[in-house]
Design a protein around this nucleic acid. Structure first.
Lengths: 192, 192, 192, 192
DNA sequence: CGCTAACCGAGACGGTACGTCCCGTCTTTAC
DNA sequence: GTAAAGACGGGACGTACCGTCTCGGTTAGCG
């Protein structure tokens, strides 16, 4: 579905337009409101062309979401101390949750993952990868003695990322970038 | 929509059946798959009767979800020390996320909240109330000197509940009740 | 499909409109050009309503054609001599072939009958009944001695009706009512 | 459309295959069921190639039918007496109506002629030519005194051919070759 | 303890979107 | 230079629900 090196350049052109429109549609209207005919209208690509390239709503959404997910966070200065790296990763997550296509699609993605194995794999895999960066930074800090030995990197990463995600999907006020230091201080303590 | 004091007992009988069927439908098929005609078939109540009592899919779902949300968690021994109360609240949350109607509807609820103000208010309000119990326990601990003074009750509650919710909606493995002590230890530290 | 005594008067109202539009459509556009959506537009009845009452194009056309066929030719003075009755029947046939809904649908009907058993039965049955009136008139004439004994009523009816139909479907000039006497004279002779 | 003197022999080879497939398709599935893509599959010639040589369904069908029509009936012993020539011509017509590609395409041809001027001209022209042979035989018979002077050759030919065609397109039982003498006897009488 | 008003089920209605199929046009690649 | 392959926009197909509506049948509760 995402083959490169297509023979006919029209194919890639259509697919790009459709993927873009699909993400807009998903962000605006959610999983339930998402409609192939609406994507066709929005993208200017005929419905029959969409069905020529994807088997249906699920395949299209899964494919479109994959394009959002390829960039796995630019390297945030690997040389800095681990607490700074953690803060940087959380600022990036919080910033993305405030305003990005992925954040706007997140509720739809959560809902879709619940009922479709393909979306589920995509969604969970992406989150696991993203969280791993946080785990690594925390583990580095523990190894370097910057963080106390009783910090469990896995669980702590969960708590830090969880705070940000919780605010996005469970409350009316997304997590602000400004709040990151408070969060880090509360979870990791003033501890050295 | 949820008027008490119905004159005709048939009305309440129908509404109860429909609400129950609606929750089943929502848990099984999600927000997108939810259909009024399907609820009508499932509940044995005619479609026209459903539309007589609710204005549509959203109103029905919002009303049905309200019935799940009325019991705001029984008081878990307010006299215990605050760390135990925190663990108890998190065990309750984690248990619910592993298996309950509300957990099964959570993705649909998040999705619906994104696009409907009524559901949004309901969802956020419920979460705020639930989280507040955690905040209160943490604040009590800080006030009693059981927890360090640099613990911010609001943010810490967010991190603790967030870890559980994150695992429910962002990963394939929900938070296990057994993991609660590790979580609490990691976030609050072995600290006194 | 043609039940009388419907409960809901809307049903009959819709069906009448659709049948009328279907015949127009069939006459104008032919069997190949006939489209349900076009009938829906023409009749002002929604496509879904059409499919609620007929299983598809074939069933609708067969049903609509049946409404054309119910009137089996008014009694053309049974007391007249048989040659006059024959001429009267042929004038009626020729007139109908020059201008009537049935005539306009005839090519479509012939084509449809070729590929659908239901239409075939309808088409052949109607033609058999119609031709039988001619056979009867000719047989009466032979029995009464008005026509020579060597006239085979079956075959002669075929030749008389065939001349009219042939001109409708095989030539550019339909059979004119004025030509009936010539036809009858040629086939039955000036014979007494 | 039917250019002779093609330069590239591949062209003629493709066109021959397509015409043959088109006639099969037309006979099997009728005018409505006829599809260019189906003809392409059946003939092994690409759809784009078909559209290069014909403007569409109508042009292709009209062209293919022309190939059926070129042979205008071999001369059936012009020296025989006219009654025998009439019977011979009718036997040929009846035989063809029982089993031939042309007969199988006849309903589609009638339907197409109704809506397309090119097909109409072809169809009517062919029928006129074919019927003329019958008219000539009858006129010869009248001139030679073999048939009564009150036989109108035009109208009588119409009745004879009409009987055969009528049975093909209006009834379930095509005209049998065996029935030709009965038909001729009934229409022309035992008359001298 | 019978009437009547409300409530109910059944389902027709005009719509919209689905996913499939074919049309006729157009573009690319292989021979 | 021609053909095969097939993508494209378009539009009809027949299906499934949507939310509105009309229709009788039943049933609760008041008189």
């Amino acid at each position: 579905m995402a083959e490169l090196q297509q023979r006919d350049p029209r194919i890639e052109r259509s697919m790009v337009r459709v993927r873009r429109a699909a993400l807009e549609e998903l962000a605006e209207r959610g999983w339930g409101g998402f409609g192939i005919e609406s994507v066709a209208r929005r993208s200017g690509v005929a419905k029959s062309t969409i069905y020529r390239h994807w088997t249906g709503k699920l395949a299209l959404v899964a494919d479109a979401l994959e394009t959002l997910v390829v960039q796995p966070v630019a390297e945030p200065g690997a040389s800095a101390d681990s607490r700074s790296r953690v803060e940087e990763l959380l600022r990036h997550l919080a910033g993305g949750m405030r305003d990005s296509t992925l954040s706007r699609c997140l509720p739809a993605l959560i809902e879709a993952a619940e009922h479709d194995a393909g979306v589920r794999t995509l969604h969970h895999g992406f989150n696991d990868r993203r969280r791993q960066a946080l785990v690594d930074a925390l583990a580095d800090g523990v190894a370097a003695g910057e963080l106390p030995a009783d910090v469990d990197p896995e669980v702590t990463a969960l708590a830090l990322a969880g705070a940000v995600i919780y605010r996005r999907v469970m409350t009316s006020r997304p997590f602000d970038v400004e709040e990151v230091p408070t969060l880090v201080a509360s979870v990791l303590g003033g501890r050295r």
